[in-house]
Simulated assay, not measured.
Amino acid sequence: MSIPKTHPFDFDPTYGMRLEELLAVKPPEPPEGFDDFWEARYHKALAVDPQPVLSRSRITHPDWHVLDLVYLSTDAFRIGGWLILPREGEVRRGLVVGHGYGGRDRPDFELPIKETAILFPCCRGLSLSAHPPISQNPSWHVLHDIDKPDSYIIGGCVEDIWLAVSTLTAFYPWLCGHIGYSGISFGGGVGAMAIAYDERIDRGHLALPSFGHQPLRLKLPTVGSAQSVQEYQAEHGNALETLRFYDAATAARRINVPMLTAVALFDPAVAPPCQFAVANAIPKPNEIFILDAGHFDYPGSAEQEAALRDRVGQFFGVP
């Protein structure tokens, strides 16, 4: 274990908690109507025809065909991304890969996965799905319509993931029931909410998942988008009412497929107790992969990330 001993932050990104304490963190109780809220959104999303359009990408790779992709999400929101297809072998699985709050400028070709159609969507307002006046700055994006529980932008981002699954099944109907999801940080939190209600997703990987245990997320010192939410709450006092419906840990209790969750003992951007609240809430089978730190460079990080990448490849292996 090589948890960073020195750092530039004016708070302790371990929050003084050891592994056994983190493994004991429980998710918050759901607000009344939580399941009805998400089930209604899911059925609304299922009714949307994504009308996907593919075109040859300028990005090339020796092992993958790379296609630029546009599809429609809820509220006719235009979502951009990429679909990559293996140059060798059949397409026997599908995978939707989310991104962190920095967005995405190209597919990730380092995933050790074969015979899989991999879709990399950019969630609404970010990267290829930029849409002014929605800000691409995470500190502002995370606040977009936060005072409106029914239209908070994070809900739209979850719907974008569901429509990515619909896009894969539109191209490859036989993949239904053989589609996974993988997401980090922002994409991990959004992914927990998406997987919880989408029966078409058969397994998921969440790394450093955000949006877990919102009451704690509002209290623990942090940097990045969570700090922006804390500042908003301090000024307006009305964020928690919305955020309780967008809690990745609350949603994670509803997940009933195999999961691989990577969580960190030290993280200045996504507090470890909030990450562990997500991981701990997921019913078995749920494998928890422990990282020394997240959102921070540390000795041994390359080795840990390589080991996690190998495990992800095994987890999403062709059935």
Rank of each mutant, 00 (worst) to 15 (best):
E115K: 15
P50A: 02
S185E: 10
V53Y: 02
K44I: 13
A262M: 09
I154G: 09
P8V: 01
E21C: 12
T222G: 09
G180R: 08
D68H: 01
G80T: 03
R311H: 05
C157H: 07
V263L: 00
P209V: 04
T74M: 13
G80N: 12
D310Q: 12
H61M: 03
G188F: 03
A269S: 12
A249K: 07
G191W: 00
D12L: 07
G125R: 01
P283W: 08
F211W: 15
Y101A: 12
F266R: 11
R87N: 05
F296D: 01
G80L: 00
F245R: 09
I195M: 04
D267T: 11
Y172W: 14
L208C: 11
T250V: 13
R92K: 12
D198I: 04
P299W: 10
F34P: 00
K219D: 10
A239Q: 08
R18G: 06
A196Q: 05
P50F: 05
P112R: 08
E20M: 13
V142D: 00
K114R: 10
A279Y: 11
I255W: 07
C122W: 00
I3P: 07
V70M: 15
Q233P: 04
V223K: 03
I161V: 14
W64Y: 09
D35A: 14
A306S: 14
D267H: 00
P272L: 01
L265E: 13
P30H: 14
V263M: 03
H178A: 14
P299G: 06
D292H: 07
T60P: 00
P107K: 02
I282K: 00
W174N: 13
Y42E: 08
E303P: 15
T60G: 01
L168F: 10
L95T: 09
S228H: 10
P299F: 06
T169I: 14
G177C: 11
Q233W: 08
F296R: 09
H178V: 06
P121D: 03
D292Q: 04
Y42S: 05
L291P: 07
I84Q: 02
L19M: 12
A281E: 08
R244P: 08
P62Y: 04
P107C: 12
V97K: 09
I59P: 00
G155M: 02
Q314Y: 13
G81R: 09
N238M: 11
I3W: 02
D36I: 02
C176V: 15
R56L: 13
E115V: 15
S55D: 08
A194G: 04
F34Q: 05
